[in-house]
């Protein structure tokens, strides 16, 4: 009788554990993540490189993370967490994150994710110089990584319906303001091609050095930039640093 009882209890445990086990996905390499289809479950171990501001919607706390390990960069969108939990995710922290692969306007993301903090030495990725890849399809291989662009010239931005030229705009169409902590949009030119870079204000707000640096740009300045290679219908880097290497004449 004891044996039957033990067997039934073991069976009950297995039944309870099956759904949990089914959802477990092994930690993936860069190649495995890359091969996973959109909507497949994914799991990676990576280090926090940056985050957008923690916020609440309908009382649910969430934060978007920029992650990277020695192989690849990842963008984890709106990961649910409390304010207290978010404060533990300082740059360099290693986490194991499981969720689903998603693609939104070309940006590859991890969504509906859960994470756990792992014990490890902190790791901050070096920004890889991808200037030569600007305008080429190969740039997409570096999506979500920390990257650097060098020797770019600040090109003019215009507001629809006006002839005025600006070195940057508050919000994409110039409708924003510093007080509203609007994103900054600025154009850079390399070899005759123009690209739009963004200071995402939830990542680097109006009190950050990069926000102030971009506000100080002038058309024609030559700059070096670094940031996370975000994608929005094409490359749209979220810039975290900008330095003028040669001022406009």
């Amino acid at each position: 009788m004891k044996k039957i009882l033990a067997l039934v209890l073991a069976l009950a445990l297995v039944v309870c554990a099956i759904p949990a086990l089914a959802e477990e996905v092994a930690v993936m390499t860069k190649e495995e993540f890359s091969k996973a289809a959109v909507d497949d479950p994914v799991c990676v171990e990576a280090y926090v490189q940056g985050n957008q501001a923690w916020w609440e919607k309908d009382g649910i706390g969430q934060m978007t993370l920029y992650l990277q390990n020695e192989e690849d960069g990842y963008f984890a969108y709106n990961v649910q967490m409390t304010k207290e939990e978010s404060e533990k995710l300082v740059p360099g922290t290693k986490i194991r994150i499981s969720g689903f692969k998603a693609e939104w306007s070309g940006e590859i993301e991890i969504v509906d994710a859960k994470y756990e903090i792992l014990e490890a030495d902190p790791f901050i990725a070096e920004a890889e110089d991808v200037t030569a890849l600007l305008g080429k399809d190969e740039l997409a291989d570096h999506m979500n990584e920390k990257v650097a662009f060098k020797g770019l010239k600040v090109a003019a931005s215009k507001v629809d319906g006006k002839d005025d030229e600006f070195p940057f705009l508050y919000a994409w169409d110039g409708s924003g303001s510093r007080d509203a902590n609007s994103d900054l949009y600025f154009n850079v030119e390399l070899n005759g091609e123009v690209f739009t870079f963004t200071v995402e204000s939830y990542l680097c707000g109006n009190d950050s050095d990069v926000y102030k640096a971009v506000e100080g740009l002038k058309i024609g300045d030559t700059i070096d930039c670094e940031g996370f290679l975000y994608w929005y219908n094409g490359p749209n880097p979220h810039i975290t640093g900008a330095t003028v290497t040669a001022a406009a004449e």
């Binding site: 507001v159 629809d160 919000a171 994409w172 169409d173 110039g174 409708s175 924003g176």
Partner: peptide, 9 residues
């Protein structure tokens, strides 16, 4: 609130 629209601003 605006729809990120300079005309509304």
């Amino acid at each position: 609130k605006n729809d990120t629209n300079k005309n509304q601003v």
